[in-house]
Amino acid sequence: SKDAAQYVYDEAQKGVTQVTVNGVTFKFDNWQKLLKYAQKLLN
């Protein structure tokens, strides 16, 4: 959902490398990768 994507995006902006959405945890090597993933979700 857009809300989940926005949440992931906001978390990535904080510099975190993992985020949990609806009980599913996504882990990334660095926050830039998390940010890229979030941007994909938002598009």
Results as ranks from 00 to 15, higher is better:
residue 43 N to W: 06
residue 1 S to Q: 07
residue 2 K to M: 12
residue 8 V to T: 07
residue 28 F to R: 02
residue 3 D to W: 06
residue 8 V to R: 02
residue 36 K to H: 05
residue 39 Q to T: 04
residue 11 E to M: 07
residue 11 E to D: 12
residue 14 K to G: 11
residue 1 S to C: 15
residue 18 Q to V: 08
residue 40 K to R: 04
residue 3 D to I: 14
residue 18 Q to S: 03
residue 3 D to C: 14
residue 27 K to M: 15
residue 35 L to Y: 04
residue 38 A to Q: 00
residue 40 K to A: 05
residue 25 T to A: 05
residue 23 G to I: 15
residue 13 Q to H: 03
residue 14 K to Q: 11
residue 32 Q to L: 13
residue 16 V to N: 09
residue 42 L to K: 01
residue 35 L to Q: 01
residue 5 A to F: 09
residue 6 Q to P: 01
residue 34 L to I: 02
residue 9 Y to P: 14
residue 9 Y to Q: 11
residue 41 L to A: 01
residue 34 L to R: 00
residue 42 L to C: 11
residue 15 G to R: 02
residue 15 G to M: 11
residue 2 K to H: 08
residue 20 T to W: 14
residue 4 A to D: 14
residue 29 D to V: 14
residue 42 L to E: 00
residue 36 K to M: 02
residue 14 K to W: 12
residue 21 V to K: 13
residue 7 Y to H: 15
residue 28 F to Y: 05
residue 7 Y to D: 15
residue 29 D to Y: 12
residue 11 E to W: 14
residue 28 F to L: 13
residue 27 K to S: 14
residue 21 V to T: 12
residue 35 L to V: 02
residue 27 K to D: 14
residue 20 T to R: 13
residue 37 Y to P: 00
residue 4 A to T: 03
residue 31 W to G: 00
residue 34 L to M: 01
residue 35 L to R: 01
residue 9 Y to N: 10
residue 11 E to K: 10
residue 30 N to I: 15
residue 13 Q to F: 12
residue 6 Q to C: 15
residue 28 F to Q: 01
residue 6 Q to Y: 04
residue 17 T to G: 09
residue 36 K to W: 05
residue 22 N to A: 14
residue 26 F to S: 02
residue 29 D to L: 14
residue 34 L to V: 01
residue 26 F to R: 08
residue 41 L to F: 03
residue 4 A to E: 11
residue 4 A to L: 08
residue 33 K to Y: 06
residue 21 V to N: 05
residue 35 L to H: 01
residue 38 A to L: 12
residue 21 V to Q: 05
residue 23 G to F: 15
residue 2 K to S: 06
residue 23 G to K: 09
residue 17 T to F: 12
residue 3 D to R: 03
residue 7 Y to C: 15
residue 15 G to I: 12
residue 35 L to F: 06
residue 38 A to E: 00
residue 34 L to F: 03
residue 1 S to P: 14
residue 26 F to Q: 09
residue 38 A to F: 09
residue 2 K to R: 12
residue 31 W to Y: 04
residue 32 Q to F: 12
residue 10 D to N: 09
residue 29 D to Q: 06
residue 16 V to W: 10
residue 36 K to C: 07
residue 20 T to M: 05
residue 41 L to P: 00
residue 24 V to L: 14
residue 22 N to E: 11
residue 32 Q to R: 04
residue 7 Y to R: 14
residue 18 Q to W: 10
residue 6 Q to E: 13
residue 4 A to M: 03
residue 22 N to F: 15
residue 43 N to C: 15
residue 11 E to I: 10
residue 37 Y to T: 06
residue 16 V to S: 11
residue 31 W to K: 00
residue 13 Q to L: 11
residue 6 Q to R: 09
residue 11 E to Y: 07
residue 8 V to E: 14
residue 29 D to C: 14
residue 21 V to F: 08
residue 35 L to W: 02
residue 34 L to W: 02
residue 40 K to W: 08
residue 25 T to W: 08
residue 5 A to K: 04
residue 38 A to I: 11
residue 20 T to A: 12
residue 25 T to D: 08
